[in-house]
């Protein structure tokens, strides 16, 4: 297996444009309405939120298309893709580093929160890659996006409803499954500072579990990726 240069370039340019563009729009005040939440302390969580959105929504569409067969008779979907994809996650991580440092300076975020912000993005990228590699894009796509909706929107909404109306026990542990909700806790003075670490642990463990169980799973159907 090898990586397609043109698709890798498209991935990285899109990644840069998306993250830098989100930060520019947020801090620049270029929209016709004011983004009330994006004050200096919110700059870092804004960047992490936009990175998480890219990782969870856009990155899955690149995963099956990023690797191409080096030889004509090589099967298209093998576990040999994993190191190649993880290397691209590492490149994305490094490419986003200047913007992350910049937003950290704007937001006055401590080293630990900064570390967990970057770790959260990296862990989610690995988790998404593991899901699509192990299950295959055809099997994974619909269930993945259903899970994405449940974790990102439904669980925090349940937490909100329980806090506002039920008055019962807090469902913050459910909301911690939402990567966006966890990233929002990276703001200085956020009430649940443990949430990013918990989310990293949960999705990191799931990614490791998926990769470790790969030899025991049924070989996924070949992907519909084209050859470069």
């Amino acid at each position: 297996m090898r990586l397609s240069v043109s698709r890798a370039l498209a991935l990285h340019l899109l990644w840069t444009a998306f993250t830098c563009g989100a930060l520019l729009i947020a801090i620049g005040g270029v929209l016709p309405f004011r983004l009330g939440a994006i004050d200096p302390p919110g700059a870092f969580s804004c960047l992490v939120e936009s990175e998480i959105f890219f990782i969870l929504v856009v990155w899955p569409f690149f995963i099956p298309r990023l690797c191409v067969a080096a030889k004509d008779d090589e099967p298209m979907r093998t576990l040999g893709e994993t190191p190649l994809l993880l290397s691209q996650v590492a490149v994305m991580f490094v490419v986003a580093l200047p913007a992350a440092l910049l937003s950290r300076n704007l937001a006055d975020v401590g080293t630990l929160r900064f570390f967990f912000g970057l770790l959260l993005v990296g862990v989610l990228a690995c988790f998404t890659a593991a899901v699509f590699l192990i299950l295959g894009p055809r099997r994974a796509t619909s269930s993945y996006f259903l899970g994405f909706f449940v974790c990102s929107a439904l669980l925090p909404f349940c937490h909100y409803l329980s806090g506002e109306f039920a008055g019962g026990p807090s469902l913050a542990f459910l909301a911690a499954l939402s990567p966006f909700w966890s990233a929002a806790q990276l703001r200085p003075g956020a009430p649940l500072s443990w949430a990013p670490a918990a989310t990293c642990a949960i999705y990191g463990a799931l990614a490791l579990l998926l990769l470790a169980s790969a030899p025991f799973l049924k070989t996924p159907a070949p992907a519909d990726s084209s050859r470069a």
Partner: peptide, 22 residues
């Protein structure tokens, strides 16, 4: 709440960085 000087510097930095990567 923004320091305009700092916001301008951050925006300039981001634009130049994205263009250089491209």
């Amino acid at each position: 709440p923004w320091s305009e000087l700092k916001r301008d510097a951050a925006m300039l930095f981001l634009v130049i960085y994205a263009f250089s990567l491209f």
